[in-house]
Simulated scan of single mutants.
Amino acid sequence: MQQSAVCFLLTTTLFACGPAPDQFGKLDLKKWRSDRGGCNGIRATLLPDFKAEIHNLKGKTANTIGELLGRPDINQIADRNQKFYVYFLEKGSHCDKPGTKSNSRSVAIRMSAIGLATEVTFQNGLP
């Protein structure tokens, strides 16, 4: 009995540590992650596919969002232990001078205090 539980945990752990997926519904995650900061214009072309999957992003953990979409371009701390993962959708001043304020189109995913995605918004710059 104990041996089967250990085998199950080992198998689950091995599969959980696999490579990040390349597809999330219609969204090509490999292309999304390759366009850091939206500086190459690839994310803008993927926007319709991203919007089609918004409802599937809500409720995912911060770790899962990071695995799917890659490290956020900006990780912004908000009130009440919430945070935003911000991904730029187009080239802007942040591409030429990292760390500078940018008004480029972006998408922000709000993470709750318990680390779950609760809201996805689109804006120019930061939320």
Score class of each variant (00 low, 15 high):
residue 91 K to S: 03
residue 6 V to E: 10
residue 98 P to G: 14
residue 51 K to G: 01
residue 120 V to W: 14
residue 23 Q to M: 07
residue 17 C to T: 03
residue 104 S to K: 15
residue 13 T to H: 11
residue 83 K to H: 15
residue 27 L to F: 03
residue 58 K to Y: 04
residue 88 F to R: 02
residue 113 A to T: 10
residue 18 G to I: 09
residue 45 T to F: 06
residue 54 I to V: 12
residue 97 K to E: 04
residue 118 T to E: 08
residue 69 L to V: 00
residue 121 T to C: 14
residue 45 T to E: 14
residue 10 L to T: 09
residue 70 G to Q: 06
residue 37 G to R: 13
residue 51 K to H: 11
residue 56 N to P: 01
residue 63 N to W: 05
residue 107 V to Y: 02
residue 2 Q to S: 12
residue 83 K to E: 13
residue 36 R to V: 03
residue 103 N to Q: 15
residue 35 D to H: 05
residue 57 L to M: 14
residue 114 I to K: 08
residue 34 S to Q: 15
residue 126 L to V: 09
residue 70 G to L: 13
residue 62 A to D: 07
residue 16 A to V: 14
residue 17 C to K: 11
residue 118 T to A: 07
residue 120 V to M: 13
residue 93 S to D: 05
residue 24 F to D: 01
residue 104 S to P: 02
residue 108 A to W: 06
residue 102 S to W: 02
residue 11 T to C: 08
residue 122 F to Q: 11
residue 124 N to T: 04
residue 10 L to Q: 12
residue 44 A to G: 01
residue 2 Q to G: 15
residue 79 D to T: 05
residue 87 Y to Q: 09
residue 70 G to N: 08
residue 50 F to S: 01
residue 111 M to E: 08
residue 40 N to G: 00
residue 16 A to D: 12
residue 122 F to G: 04
residue 45 T to M: 15
residue 54 I to T: 05
residue 25 G to S: 14
residue 29 L to N: 06
residue 60 K to Q: 02
residue 9 L to P: 00
residue 79 D to K: 12
residue 89 L to W: 04
residue 21 P to C: 05
residue 53 E to F: 04
residue 110 R to Y: 10
residue 52 A to D: 11
residue 69 L to A: 07
residue 46 L to H: 02
residue 126 L to I: 08
residue 57 L to P: 01
residue 38 G to C: 00
residue 107 V to T: 15
residue 87 Y to W: 08
residue 81 N to G: 06
residue 90 E to M: 01
residue 40 N to T: 03
residue 96 D to T: 09
residue 2 Q to D: 05
residue 93 S to V: 02
residue 116 L to F: 11
residue 112 S to N: 12
residue 104 S to F: 01
residue 33 R to Q: 08
residue 16 A to C: 08
residue 123 Q to D: 07
residue 39 C to D: 03
residue 55 H to E: 04
residue 112 S to W: 10
residue 27 L to Q: 02
residue 33 R to W: 03
residue 16 A to E: 14
residue 124 N to E: 08
residue 84 F to K: 11
residue 46 L to M: 10
residue 109 I to P: 03
residue 83 K to R: 10
residue 49 D to H: 10
residue 74 I to W: 09
residue 57 L to F: 11
residue 101 K to W: 08
residue 28 D to T: 05
residue 80 R to K: 14
residue 16 A to F: 14
residue 88 F to A: 00
residue 38 G to T: 00
residue 114 I to C: 05
residue 109 I to C: 07
residue 62 A to F: 06
residue 29 L to G: 01
residue 120 V to H: 15
residue 8 F to I: 02
residue 115 G to K: 11
residue 72 P to F: 04
residue 69 L to P: 00
residue 23 Q to I: 13
residue 108 A to Q: 15
residue 97 K to P: 00
residue 17 C to M: 13
residue 28 D to S: 09
residue 29 L to Y: 06
residue 120 V to T: 15
residue 86 V to H: 10
residue 103 N to E: 12
residue 51 K to N: 07
residue 79 D to W: 15
residue 76 Q to N: 15
residue 125 G to M: 12
residue 15 F to C: 09
residue 50 F to M: 03
residue 33 R to L: 03
residue 103 N to V: 02
residue 63 N to P: 00
residue 41 G to N: 07
residue 98 P to M: 13
residue 112 S to R: 11
residue 66 G to D: 04
residue 16 A to H: 11
residue 51 K to P: 00
residue 19 P to S: 10
residue 48 P to V: 05
residue 42 I to E: 06
residue 75 N to T: 09
residue 30 K to D: 05
residue 27 L to E: 01
residue 98 P to C: 13
residue 90 E to H: 01
residue 1 M to R: 11
residue 63 N to V: 04
residue 19 P to N: 13
residue 74 I to D: 11
residue 85 Y to H: 08
